Computed example of a mutant assay.
Amino acid sequence: MLKKCIRDPSLILPTESIRIKDSLSYGEIPVQILDRQIRKLRTKEVASTKVLWRNQFVEEATWEAEEDMKKRYPYLFESGGNADQGINFLLSAL
């Protein structure tokens, strides 16, 4: 059952103070590479990586082209502590 609501004008927030993008989108950041594989086509081979994205579960990881991922996110392919520094840098930028 619906009840009648008494409006309180002091609780209304001006929309200018809330910074919402018009597209209502956000950028995903890759966190870890879970797996690698080479898919053989008729004339060439394509290297793919299974990428775990921030705010997603392992089951929702996606296969991406390794070459593109190396260009856009080189810190994922570095060994040692440098990979952690790259992730921390991206997270601090947000």
Rank of each mutant, 00 (worst) to 15 (best):
E28D: 09
P30Y: 05
N88H: 14
N82A: 15
S48M: 08
L11E: 14
S79P: 06
R36W: 01
A61V: 00
L90C: 14
Y26I: 09
G81N: 02
K40M: 04
T43S: 05
F77W: 02
S79N: 13
N82V: 12
Q37L: 06
D22K: 14
R42G: 15
R72Q: 09
R19P: 11
E64I: 00
P9K: 05
M1Y: 04
L52E: 04
P74Q: 06
A61Y: 03
A65H: 06
N88I: 11
I87A: 04
R72I: 14
R42L: 12
I20D: 13
L24W: 01
L94Q: 11
R42H: 14
A47Y: 00
W63P: 04
K44Y: 03
K40D: 05
G80Q: 10
A61S: 15
E64A: 00
I38H: 01
C5F: 12
A65V: 06
K21W: 01
R19K: 06
Y26Q: 12
A83H: 03
R19N: 13
S10K: 08
A65P: 02
L24K: 15
Q32V: 09
L2M: 10
G80D: 05
R42Q: 10
I20N: 14
I33W: 03
K3Q: 14
S79H: 08
M69G: 03
Q32R: 12
F57E: 09
A93F: 04
P74R: 07
P30R: 02
A93N: 13
W53S: 09
R39W: 05
I18D: 02
T62A: 02
F77V: 09
A83L: 01
E45P: 05
E59P: 00
D68H: 01
Q56N: 07
P14S: 15
G27R: 07
T43C: 00
Q37T: 13
V51P: 05
G80S: 10
P74I: 11
F89G: 06
K4P: 00
S23W: 02
S23V: 03
Q32D: 14
V51F: 01
L2I: 12
S23P: 00
N82F: 01
I12Q: 08
L13T: 15
Y75V: 13
P9F: 05
I38D: 09
A65R: 11
N55T: 08
L91I: 10
D22W: 01
S92Y: 08
E64C: 08
A47P: 11
Q85A: 12
N88K: 13
R39C: 13
E60D: 11
K70V: 13
V46D: 03
K44S: 08
P30D: 09
A93V: 06
L2E: 15
E78Q: 04
Y73V: 13
I12H: 02
N88G: 11
Q85I: 07
K50T: 00
E78P: 00
I87T: 07
Q56T: 10
Q37F: 03
D84V: 10
R7A: 13
G86V: 04
Q85K: 11
